[in-house]
C-alpha cells in the first residue's frame, strides 16, 4: 500500500526521538523497498497503520471511521501526493533560502518559513527619493547606470563587478555593513558604491562624501566606514561630519555647499532612478540584483 511511503519519513523522524518508532521505521524501509520493486509489503505495517488510524477515529466518530476505512486508498494517495509535493517545495525552499536568503527565490519578497520575520527581504524604503518605481527585485537594472558618477575602486585584474546602493541612515544597509566592507575589499572585483539619501532634505552626508571623494579617494573609503558606524542620528549632523573630515585631514568647507556638488548629487539621484532601485541595500553582483540584507553566503556565491 502507498501508505508506507508516508510512514517512512514520519517514523524516521519520530525514531530520532523515541526508540519505540525505530522498529516501525525499519519496517517502513522494508515496505517501501518492496513497494518500489513492485512487490507486496509483507510486514503488515500498512494494515496496522490503517487499523490504528481508523480505530482512533471510530472511537470518536464511527461514521467518519467507516468513511476513512472505505476510502483509505484514496486518502493514502492524496496524502502521498501532498507529501511528495510538500517535500519538493520544502527542499526547493531550503535550497532557495541557502542560495538567495529567501525560500521563494532571489526575486521574491514573499513569506519564507526559514526567515519568518522576513528580515532578509526587508529594505529601507526609498519612495521619498526614488518614488514611482516598481518594488520588484527583478525590475532592477544597470543598463543605464553610470558608475563614473559614484565612488569607485577599479582593479586591474578584476573579474567581478559589484555595485552597492546604500545609505548611511538606512537600517538594513547598516545590517549588511560587514558584507559591504568585505565586498569593497574584494580583490577580484571592481566596486562602485552609490550613496542615496533616504530623505530628500538630508543631503549633507552625501555632499560631504562627494567632496571627500573628489579630494582624496582613499580618505573617502575611511569616511564611508566611519559614517556607517556612527549613530544614525548623527549622520546628517554637520558638526559631526566636520569632525570626521577633519580627522581624515580633508578640507571640504568650500566644496559641500558649492553648486557643482549640489548638481552632482542631483545627477547621482537621477541616474540611480534608472536602476529602479526602490530600497536599500540593493547590491548588484555581476549584474544580479540582491535586495535586502541577505546572509553573507548569498553575496559570496555570486562572485566568480
Amino acid at each position: 500500500m502507498v501508505l508506507c511511503f508516508i510512514a517512512l519519513p514520519v517514523f524516521l523522524i519520530l525514531g530520532i526521538f523515541s526508540a519505540k518508532y525505530r522498529q516501525l521505521a525499519k519496517e517502513s524501509i522494508r515496505c517501501v523497498f518492496l513497494k518500489a520493486t513492485f512487490r507486496p509489503c509483507d510486514v503488515g505495517l500498512d494494515t496496522r497503520v490503517k487499523a490504528s488510524i481508523v480505530g482512533n477515529v471510530m472511537r470518536f466518530n464511527k461514521t467518519l471511521g467507516r468513511l476513512i476505512y472505505k476510502y483509505f486508498i484514496v486518502f493514502s494517495w492524496i496524502f502521498t501526493i501532498l507529501l511528495v509535493a510538500s517535500t519538493y517545495y520544502t527542499a526547493a525552499g531550503g535550497i532557495n533560502y541557502y542560495l538567495y536568503g529567501n525560500c521563494n527565490g532571489l526575486d521574491s519578497t514573499d513569506f519564507c518559513l526559514f526567515d519568518p520575520s522576513g528580515h532578509n527581504s526587508q529594505v529601507t524604503d526609498l519612495t521619498a527619493v526614488c518614488g514611482g518605481v516598481p518594488k520588484e527585485p527583478k525590475s532592477l537594472t544597470l543598463d543605464f547606470f553610470n558608475s563614473s558618477l559614484y565612488y569607485q575602486i577599479d582593479r586591474d585584474e578584476a573579474i567581478n563587478e559589484v555595485v552597492i546602493v546604500g545609505c548611511y541612515e538606512c537600517k538594513y544597509t547598516r545590517d549588511t555593513f560587514d558584507v559591504i566592507q568585505e565586498l569593497i575589499a574584494e580583490e577580484t572585483a571592481d566596486v562602485t558604491f552609490a550613496h542615496l539619501p533616504i530623505h530628500p532634505q538630508n543631503k549633507q552626508s552625501s555632499n560631504y562624501a562627494n567632496c571627500v571623494y573628489e579630494q582624496d579617494q582613499e580618505a573617502f573609503w575611511e569616511y564611508n566606514q566611519v559614517l556607517f558606524n556612527i549613530p544614525i542620528n548623527q549622520t546628517e549632523n554637520t558638526t559631526v561630519l566636520n569632525n570626521v573630515v577633519d580627522q581624515l585631514g580633508v578640507n571640504v568647507s568650500s566644496c559641500v555647499s558649492s553648486n557643482e556638488t549640489i548638481v552632482l548629487l542631483d545627477e547621482q539621484i537621477k541616474n540611480l532612478k534608472t536602476t529602479n532601485v526602490y530600497g536599500t541595500p540593493s547590491i548588484f553582483i555581476n549584474g544580479e540584483a540582491i535586495v535586502g540584507p541577505k546572509p553573507r553566503r548569498v553575496y559570496m556565491r555570486l562572485l566568480d
Partner: peptide, 13 residues
Amino acid sequence: MDAHEIAQLLDKA
C-alpha cells in the same frame, strides 16, 4: 479482513 487489523480496531475503537 486481516486478523491483526480486526484486533487493532477492537482495541483502538
